[in-house]
Design a binder for these strands. Structure first.
Length: 791
DNA sequence: GCTTCGCATGGAA
DNA sequence: GTTCCATGCGAAG
């Protein structure tokens, strides 16, 4: 069989029609010579008049290889399309659901085509030969040249795979001008099959088999052999075909963005090859038609050109190509890591119109990611799939460009963890701060081709459901100080100390964020973990609506007491004075709240420092109470169960938490046990009961004045007012002593008051001391609070 | 006393 | 039961 692609790739010197089935001489007097499809070299096949007319009319394939395999019908219009032939490569695209569409048809289905990014990218990948040298070298040049291999990145989209040799970082192919034409022609998407494959499927074929490798990078799909097989560069029309797309030197994939829905950003990719030679110099690949794959000797060509193969071989090799266990198709990653990059994000990232962007993955920043530690935990599969292979925990420096074009160098490394690895990017704090990212925001990792450069974009949590406002983004990046050039330089030189150097200029700013003090800036509506100190929690508390407080004076301090539990609201700031009295809640901007929280954190930190030396770290105790208050008792009741001695308590602490053995451990207590633990537990339990009874009786009597009651209503314990007063008093130490005294007095007074009835802790044999008393009906006492009770 | 580093832990998937 | 990963925590600087 012959086909256009079986003809010499380069235009023959002799003026003979490029169509090998024609070979008609092109007479010199015929000028200009008729043009055909675009070759990989970038040139255009020269055809005779007849062939050219046929090509232009779209009947070339039908004319010259209508009996060849590879014909399919357009799913939309039913038109017969020759798939896989270079001459018709521009005439069809793949559908997500399978099948193909001829070019005019995708326009019809554009609006409903889901997941077009992946489709488009898959389309690219299906045709994309691996190009592994150039970007790898680029990255290695700044990294340890021996430290690892780079892995194929874009495979995640659908069915890509990695070789056991190097993996490319970027790859392009030339759907000779077709896709580009489509792009410029306004075609909105290239519908392709969404392919799933089984990467674990293995064969006993040598993984290093070059032909397999070639096919890997030919990247045919598997689930739809019909379409994918015909979409690979092998021309099914020709038994001797190698590739039917042309390398286009120094060109690049162009990614065009089109109007899309927010959920499904659709991109149109025009691709052209930028083939580096083995020495890293880009040069067009030119092969003669009679050059078999085995004759292709350059490493690069080995990567690029699938050898001739029949369909059975093709299938086998397709499977072989997916045998790499650390190759993760997108479908194998957790969906939360799938890149959901938006048009505007792509626009921001792709400053260079000559570059193309391959979204790799994204990750929502955790508190620790965004914290000042400067370590961004990478999803393992993503790290292994898209970042270079590292064999040593030290990893290697990784140059990442942010959306504003600034280069950052992170240390990509891992920690051994449970017989596995935990991948982290170190030194990300400056970058994250430059982007003004916080926990809950999302960072996206993409790759710019042909450079193979890693790009880190971001999406604020508040705009996760919306397209990011470029202005917002701009401002956020503009605000950030650019990384100092000398810092970068020194980073590269020092290699191992990347993160340290990068973090230096941002220490104070990071400190202001105060994540280590469990402070989290609250800036958006997204649900996020809330860890606040008590004072910070106070700011988020407001009185229940339509509720007037009763004033309780305890130890000279006034407390507001509400019948109902306080209302939590992120946006509501409860103003309070130093005495802890709260008044009207007023709406403050999120920024204001964040600032106040940060400010308060600093104050707290100082106070905490003052309070150090106590057996119980006061601030920690307050933090704990605050956490309980914020997170809800029921949740904390479980999470705070000590399994070992409370880690924040110092040796010698005799609080109930510390004296109790780990949950489920230690001797069983008998009902009448009089050990220290039991006595304490019984006493506390009884106290709780008494409190509840007292409160109940007060409610029943509807006595308006409860001012003198030292009882802490269970609903509001720990009582915000009191704790606030305590924490904002002269010192935490004094305040805490007051609180402790208050509780202790309550215990003693009430215990003695009711001792004559049934208050004796020894007379409560019904208490099972082997359970947590806090789990009893009254959800009042929190384990952490126990540590504050004098024992 | 603070920061950084490296590992351990435990909840979640 | 296994793996992942967010986070805690101790050691070291």
């Amino acid at each position: 069989m012959s086909s256009p692609s079986s003809a010499p790739v380069a235009a023959p010197a002799a003026k003979i029609c490029f169509n090998t089935q024609c070979k008609e001489s092109i007479a010199d007097h015929i000028a200009p010579r008729r043009r055909g499809w675009r070759l990989r070299s970038g040139e255009i096949a020269e055809l005779c008049d007849r062939c050219s007319s046929s090509f232009e009319q779209g009947t070339f394939c039908e004319t010259f290889h209508s009996n060849d395999s590879g014909w399919r019908n357009c799913e939309t219009c039913g038109k017969r399309v020759h798939c896989g032939c270079i001459a018709s490569a521009q005439s069809y695209g793949f559908l997500d659901a399978g099948g193909i569409e001829c070019i005019p048809c995708p326009r019809k289905s554009l609006a409903t085509a889901p997941n077009q990014i992946s489709s488009s990218l898959m389309f690219m990948q299906q045709h994309a030969p691996e190009r592994r040298d150039s970007p790898a070298k680029t990255w290695r040049s700044m990294a340890n040249p021996l430290s690892g291999q780079w892995r194929q990145a874009s495979h995640m989209w659908n069915m890509t795979m990695q070789s056991d040799l190097q993996q490319r970082l970027s790859y392009e192919f030339d759907r000779p001008s077709s896709i580009e034409k489509l792009a410029h022609g306004g075609r909105h998407s290239i519908a392709t099959h969404e392919k799933k494959f089984e990467p674990e499927r293995k064969t006993n074929t040598d993984l290093n088999n070059i032909s397999r490798d070639k096919y890997i990078h030919g990247n045919a799909g598997e689930n739809d052999p019909m379409s994918t097989r015909k979409s690979v560069s092998t021309d099914p029309c020709s038994t001797s075909s190698i590739v039917n797309f042309e390398a286009k030197p120094n060109s690049s994939i162009k990614l065009q963005q089109l109007p899309v829905t927010k959920e499904n950003s659709s991109i149109l990719i025009s691709l052209s090859a930028s083939f580096p030679s083995s020495n890293g110099v880009k040069e067009p690949m030119k092969l003669s038609s009679n050059q078999s794959p085995s004759q292709i000797t350059t490493p690069l060509s080995k990567q690029f050109y699938p050898q001739r193969m029949n369909e059975a071989e093709l299938q086998v090799q397709m499977r072989n190509g997916r045998t790499r266990v650390d190759a993760y198709p997108r479908t194998q990653l957790l969906p939360r890591y799938w890149p959901r990059i938006t048009n505007q994000e792509l626009q921001q990232i792709s400053g260079d119109p000559q570059s193309s962007i391959t979204p790799l993955f994204e990750k929502m920043l955790s508190a620790s990611d965004a914290g000042r530690i400067g370590r961004l935990v990478l999803p393992k599969k993503c790290a292994e799939a898209y970042f270079p292979t590292i064999s040593q925990p030290e990893g290697l420096p990784l140059k990442v460009q942010d959306a504003s074009g600034k280069d950052w160098i992170f240390q990509f490394r891992f920690w051994p963890n449970n017989n596995s690895r935990m991948y982290v990017l170190e030194g990300v704090t400056p970058c994250i701060q430059a982007m003004q990212l916080q926990a809950g925001d999302t960072v996206t990792f993409s790759r710019i081709d042909p450079e193979g450069k890693l790009v880190m974009g971001f999406r604020k949590a508040s705009s996760s459901s919306n397209e990011q406002d470029p202005e917002t983004h701009k401002s956020s990046t503009d605000i950030s100080p650019p990384p100092e050039a000398d810092q970068i330089t020194s980073l590269i030189q020092k290699d191992g100390s990347t993160s340290k150097l990068l973090q230096v200029p941002s220490k104070r700013k990071a400190k202001a964020l105060g994540l280590k003090s469990n402070c989290l800036r609250i800036e958006n509506e997204e649900p996020m973990e809330l860890k606040l100190t008590w004072e910070e929690a106070q700011m988020l508390l407001c009185p229940p609506p339509n509720s007037s407080p009763s004033i309780v004076v305890i130890e000279g301090l006034e407390f507001e007491e509400y019948e109902e539990a306080p209302v939590l609201g992120k946006r509501t700031y409860l103003t309070s004075d130093q005495a802890g009295s709260s008044s009207s809640a007023q709406e403050l901007s999120l920024e204001q709240i964040a600032n106040m929280v940060s400010c308060k954190s600093g104050i707290l930190k100082k106070r905490k420092a003052k309070a150090k030396g106590d057996n119980v770290e006061v601030s920690d105790g307050l933090d704990t109470l605050a956490n309980l208050a914020i997170l809800g008792y029921s949740e904390n009741r479980q999470s705070s169960q000590p399994t070992t001695r409370h880690p924040r308590h110092k040796p010698g602490c005799t609080c109930i938490v510390c004296i109790q053995p780990p949950s489920g451990k230690g001797p069983k207590h008998k009902p009448h046990c009089t050990c220290n633990v039991c006595l304490t537990v019984k006493r506390r339990f009884r106290t709780l009961e008494l409190r509840r009874e007292k409160r109940q009786s007060e409610k029943e009597s509807e006595m308006p004045g409860k001012q003198q009651s030292p009882v802490l209503p269970p609903e509001v314990l720990p009582q915000p007012g009191s704790m606030d007063a305590a924490s904002t008093g002269p010192s935490d130490e004094v305040a805490t002593q007051k609180v402790d005294k208050l509780i202790a007095d309550t215990v003693v007074d009430e215990a003695s008051e009711h001792r004559t009835t049934s208050a004796s802790p020894h007379k409560t044999p019904q208490i099972d001391l082997n359970i947590q008393p806090e789990r009893e009906e009254e959800p009042l006492v929190q384990p952490q609070a126990v540590s504050l009770v004098p024992y």
